[in-house]
Amino acid sequence: MLEKKKNKVNRKQAKALKIANKDYEAEEVDLGSSSCLLVCNAGLMTGASRESLLEKLASYGSIERIVLIPGKSFSFVVYSEKSQAQKAVENINSLEGENEIILVTINKVPVTSEENYSMEYPPGCYLYPNFINQNYEKQLLDFFLGEFQDVDEKETLKNRQVKHYGFEFNYTTNDIDADVPLEEGIPEICHDLFNRLVHKESQSNIRSL
């Protein structure tokens, strides 16, 4: 079992190193010879964040930099001391069970920090800052939190609760049954939100799909 886990870890390390080397000239070096680490299986593509990485790695020493790059399933971490990076690798990679993160000591991290990477949104996706004010936001939150108190058990999924309006969503087909509308329509509190969306769509000349 330990040999199987070791092989799995080695495969993840090799895969991440190959991409990091090609894109950023990062190379594996001897343990304890560098303060730079490659986090092989935690990046923006896997849902990692600065906070989640700090939570797992800060106990091993002072972290100077964390680099998370859009579109990548790995990230980079730099400790203040080489000994701290070594301690992190030795402790994290030896954990029993499924490794949440896998580390490799590398020669360097990308010169450009994560703050300088421009976040590109998928085609058709737009971000409108302050689309609604705080008062309306609170009204929406209060309304839906109240609705969730009466959510049917069948509408409770593994990691979240759901509430359907207009039509029932079928998680088997990943679609709605348009021929069977629900008695409960769209809540009135959402009407203003929809009007704003329609107005924005018209302004931006966004075509609905």
Rank of each mutant, 00 (worst) to 15 (best):
A20Q: 01
G43P: 05
K22A: 11
R207E: 15
L37W: 07
V77M: 06
A88H: 03
S83W: 11
C190R: 00
S35G: 09
L95S: 14
E183A: 06
S33L: 10
Q84Y: 08
L145R: 14
E137C: 13
E115M: 10
T46W: 02
N170E: 13
F76K: 06
F144R: 01
L2G: 15
E98G: 03
H191R: 10
E28G: 01
S62Q: 11
N93K: 00
D150V: 05
Y121L: 15
V77N: 02
A42R: 10
E81Y: 13
F144Y: 12
K72M: 11
L127P: 00
H164C: 09
S204D: 14
V151S: 03
D175C: 10
A26K: 00
A48T: 03
H191F: 15
G61C: 06
I92E: 08
D152E: 13
Y171V: 12
N205K: 12
N107P: 06
L31F: 09
V77G: 04
S208G: 11
Q203G: 00
K4I: 14
Q134I: 12
Y128L: 09
L145A: 10
K22V: 04
I102C: 04
S73A: 11
L141S: 12
K138C: 06
E147H: 03
L127A: 14
N195M: 06
C125S: 15
I101M: 04
K22L: 12
S33Q: 09
N130W: 08
K5I: 13
D179R: 11
Q13W: 02
L2F: 13
V89D: 04
N174E: 09
T105W: 05
Y60I: 00
A58D: 11
N116W: 15
G61F: 06
K82G: 02
I66R: 07
T156S: 09
L157K: 08
E28R: 08
A85D: 07
K200N: 08
A85N: 06
F148H: 09
Q161F: 10
G146F: 03
I92L: 01
L38Y: 01
C125Q: 14
I186W: 07
I69G: 03
R207Y: 10
E147Y: 07
T112G: 00
Q203A: 08
E81K: 12
I69H: 01
Q86E: 15
S62H: 15
A178L: 15
P187H: 05
R196E: 09
Y136R: 05
Y24S: 02
V29Y: 03
L197E: 07
I132V: 10
A58M: 08
I132Y: 02
A14F: 14
A88Y: 01
R65K: 12
F143P: 02
D142G: 00
E3A: 12
K22P: 01
K163R: 15
L182D: 02
M45H: 08
T112K: 13
